[in-house]
Write a protein that binds this DNA or RNA. Structure first.
Lengths: 195, 195
DNA sequence: AAATTCACTGAATATATATTTAACGAATAA
DNA sequence: TTATTCGTTAAATATATATTCAGTGAATTT
């Protein structure tokens, strides 16, 4: 393995360790020495790869941003089907790639937690999933596929559930995940949308 | 106001400030100086009321434990009605008394976050809500009121949603809360349980 | 092979934070 | 009124943590 590959691998070790610790302890509470220990290196070496704890946070956030783009840009039959597909996909991903759930928790932490640098909060806030799905919900309501009610509240309820599930799974992966249909039923209209 | 009352009031100021900051920043990330500032006192004075940051955490946890007892000990018509009443009550409480949502978030943080003293984790874990409601779900399934599926997964899905909602409301109270029925639909059986 | 680069460590430094302490004055008790 | 308690603060101390640095040896280049 040449030096470039080695360097890349080291960086990935650090990033994986940081993500894991940030979601388990929180960014502020995670010490450089925690990350260095988890990544099997000295504290000093970590600064060879990232000039500061905050820069590491920034890079991790950027990785997370790329991930949030993907799952919501897709083809779907109708508005309800959109949520069915997204939900099923998210739950599957969480089980198969623990990093999915972790990243979910991490991004929420960046958005919500006080003490995160404003610059980082801004960019995370700019990809707000709740607002993206509000429009889809409105359309689904017009077609009678999604239940009546404040679209923002419905979108919020859906994403809060996903968020809660991702958090629980990150901390307690031994507890079984729900089936996608159960979660979609939060927003599903009673009459027409039944499976 | 005599000294005893004054002392009690001061303690409450500290506890309220600590709860607010712990949920917004996390216990580890919250500085004594943050709490003291929020409670309008010098750092030193805080130690006159609590011998350490950890003792303060312990007292707050005990207050939270008392709160968790109440809402689940109640009369109910049937198993589904239980969840309808609890959910409606929780959502109402969250809106009317912000401390309800904060305490929810705080207790989950105590249970999940790495770096919380084991002694405290233990007691919080001992009042696991998920396990309490598993039995109710099993009974509801036998009566056809609650949908089929792994009772633990159903209980988990329900509480994860409540948890996600409490967190979102704590950080973003401007976003409208869901209606209780939407959340109950996670576990409601399709045929019999319709309203 | 010699020179150079660079990953790496452990100790040094700087800063931040929890906790202690000495001192002050107002409330209370004598 | 005098003595004592105690709520309060700001400074002092101790400890923890982020960051820097000097040095080492292995990999790479010349």
């Amino acid at each position: 393995m040449n030096r470039k590959e080695q360097k890349e691998q080291r960086k990935n070790q650090i990033i994986a360790a940081a993500l894991d610790l940030f979601v388990k302890k929180g960014y502020m509470a995670t010490k450089i020495s925690d990350i260095a220990k988890a990544a099997n290196m000295s504290d000093g070496l970590l600064f060879h790869y990232f000039e500061s704890k905050e820069k590491l946070l920034e890079e991790l956030t950027n990785i997370g941003l790329q991930g949030t783009q993907m799952p919501l840009q897709m083809e779907y039959l109708d508005e309800l089907n959109f949520f069915e597909v997204v939900t099923a996909q998210l739950i599957t991903f969480m089980q198969e790639q623990p990093i999915t759930a972790k990243m979910f928790v991490f991004m929420a932490q960046m958005q919500r937690t006080e003490g995160i640098p404003d610059r980082i909060k801004q960019v995370v806030l700019s990809v707000s999933t709740i607002e993206k799905t509000v429009e889809i919900i409105k359309n689904g309501q017009e077609r009678g596929l999604i239940r009546n009610g404040d679209p923002m509240a419905l979108s919020n309820a859906y994403w809060c559930s996903i968020q809660g599930i991702a958090e629980q799974f990150t901390m307690h992966p031994e507890i079984p995940l729900p089936e996608a249909e159960w979660i979609v039923d939060i927003i599903r209209a009673k009459s027409k949308g039944a499976i």
